[in-house]
């Protein structure tokens, strides 16, 4: 091959490598789906609790990553399920939270997250029964947690029986097997507080903490607490 040909080959390969690296970086930092902010402050009267309903599904079923596990939240104004994990909440208010858990469970990597922490009364309810800790090595295990580290809030979401016909894509309806977990917590003063699931549920990723665990609008998000 002539010197000119070699040079062209080397430059061409270099440009391809640069393009691939750039594509990889952009793909890595790009959020899975365009996310908005679910506003729970609209029409909220001071001193009144806020109802917040969410669900967890084993596979979102749509978008760029249909097989990824995800949270969804019910839009308080339309009642529709939305894949948003940034929630605007009023400060110093009680949040009555209901999570419909449609995913199956397993033993926790760290049983510390089997403990209900930071809720009002230090408990949550599972299908109407109060609990303060759940041994993930028994029963149907823990599917996910709802944890806000900065608030010391963490609630294990007990999984459904994996032998049942688990809902395969979102949004799941209550006709599918699910557990209803309820708890209340009080928001602090204004600020931004991240929340996440502490079950490494990113299937196919190292230690289970990549993919949906590392992408906004899946298994983690922000509580934007405003005055």
């Amino acid at each position: 091959m002539s010197m000119r040909g070699r040079l062209a080959t080397v430059i061409g390969l270099f440009l391809v490598a640069v393009a691939l690296a750039g594509w990889g970086v952009v793909s890595f930092i790009r959020p899975g789906v365009p996310g908005g902010v679910m506003d729970f402050t609209q029409g909220h009267a001071a001193g009144q609790p806020v109802d917040l309903t969410a669900q967890t599904v084993g596979a979102i079923g749509f978008g760029p990553h249909p097989t990824w596990v995800s949270y969804l939240v019910k839009d308080p104004s339309t009642g529709k399920w939305v894949q948003d994990t940034t929630w605007k909440l009023p400060a110093n208010s009680v949040i009555d939270m209901t999570i419909l858990q449609y995913d199956s469970g397993s033993p926790l990597r760290n049983q510390e997250w089997g403990q209900v922490q930071g809720t009002i009364g230090g408990t949550a309810t599972l299908n109407g029964t109060s609990y303060s800790a759940y041994n993930s090595n028994t029963g149907t295990g823990v599917g996910h947690t709802f944890t806000v580290p900065a608030l010391g809030l963490s609630v294990p979401l007990i999984g459904v029986n994996s032998s049942d016909s688990v809902c395969g894509s979102a949004p799941c309806m209550t006709s599918s097997p699910h557990n209803t977990i309820t708890f209340s917590f009080k928001t602090p003063g204004p600020g931004s507080y991240s929340w996440q699931c502490f079950v490494p549920c990113g299937l196919g990723y190292l230690f289970g903490n990549g993919g949906p665990m590392s992408t906004l609008n899946y298994m983690g998000g922000q509580l934007e607490v405003v005055q």
């Binding site: 397993s106 926790l108 990597r109 295990g141 079950v199 490494p200 549920c201 196919g204 990723y205 190292l206």
Partner: peptide, 11 residues
């Protein structure tokens, strides 16, 4: 843990 919760699935 290598037994569930996706912790057992590696790249």
């Amino acid at each position: 843990d290598a037994n569930g919760a996706a912790g057992g699935y590696y790249t």
